[in-house]
Design a protein around this nucleic acid. Structure first.
Lengths: 161, 161
DNA sequence: CGGAATTACTTGAAGCGTCAAGTTACTCGG
DNA sequence: CCGAGTAACTTGACGCTTCAAGTAATTCCG
């Protein structure tokens, strides 16, 4: 891959590589910590955390999927496993009987509650410890700029630590 | 998830969410374009691109794995598929017969050569079009800072578009 | 009102990644 | 020079994600 029409400039290449390194390595690093300490994947954590903040610790499957940028199918499989482990329960929604609602059990709440501090500590360690306040602001700006290209409808709003 | 010991500040939260949105959405967006236009995953593209830049379009499996931040096992599976499709060939290394070397075939070279412009265009569109030169510099700085936490040995050097 | 389209999921199969062996080839100390 | 240790993979099984289909409930509209 060398001489193409609109290749990236040197500066862009360096930025691109740095970004890709983060994109590739960060999910693994987060999963490792969560898996080791709480036997949860990052995605499962996201699902449980989202429920823990919802009214009655309950959300529709479709909302939960959207909030975690997940397909319904993916969520459905994960929800089954989480239900088997006793972290959530699902039942038909009364208003609209096509819909299912997922509720965090007390066990599930305890689990996520216990997992949170370690997870946040890891995030802090990996991301924020070596960034200046100025850089944190810049990161937000840049991240939002990229995100608006990736997710024009702002579907993925409240990713919770 | 609310009142923990060392929670993130407001600023940190916003930066964190923006970053996570990018980390979650970007790989999918890149895969979609590559898959649609060239029937390649981002990872496969990386493998082929790396080979296309190597002397004799040839690298040891272990080097190729390191360059793409992959386990040997993952690379081995992917290499088998790429070999079945005729994009690469593998053979025993003469110097060290434990080692295998992978070589890009002409078909493989044509494939990656054809895939590159569209991929780069997509990268430009998603990342750089809405970033100022100043932000591109900041992104590199921030990315490198995070990366140095994630990958202390700087194993992942030459991620190629 | 009643059939067609749509919505909200669930399910099963297929593909990819990881993890734990297994194989073969070096290498190094005695 | 030979046996233990290590290195460079490959393989198989398992788990998770995706994709295509299926089901059931709701809505739309003629």
């Amino acid at each position: 891959m060398s001489e193409e029409q609109k290749w990236l400039s040197e500066d862009e290449q360096r930025a691109w590589r740095a970004l890709m390194a983060v994109v590739v390595l960060l999910p693994g690093a987060l999963d490792t910590q969560l898996q080791r300490d709480s036997h949860l994947s990052n995605f499962e954590y996201g699902v449980l955390a989202m429920l823990s903040e919802a009214p009655d610790r309950t959300l529709r499957m479709s909302q939960l999927a959207t909030l975690n940028d997940s397909s319904l199918s993916r969520l459905s499989h994960v929800a089954r496993r989480l239900e088997e482990r006793g972290s959530i329960i699902r039942r038909q929604c009364a208003d609209d009987r096509r819909a299912n609602i997922a509720t965090l059990t007390d066990e599930g709440y305890a689990l996520v509650k216990e997992a949170a501090p370690g997870h946040v500590a890891r995030v802090r360690e990996l991301i924020f410890d070596r960034l200046s306040p100025k850089q944190i602001g810049e990161l937000e700006q840049i991240g939002d700029a990229i995100r608006s290209n990736l997710d024009p409808e702002k579907r993925m709003p409240t990713y919770v630590t």
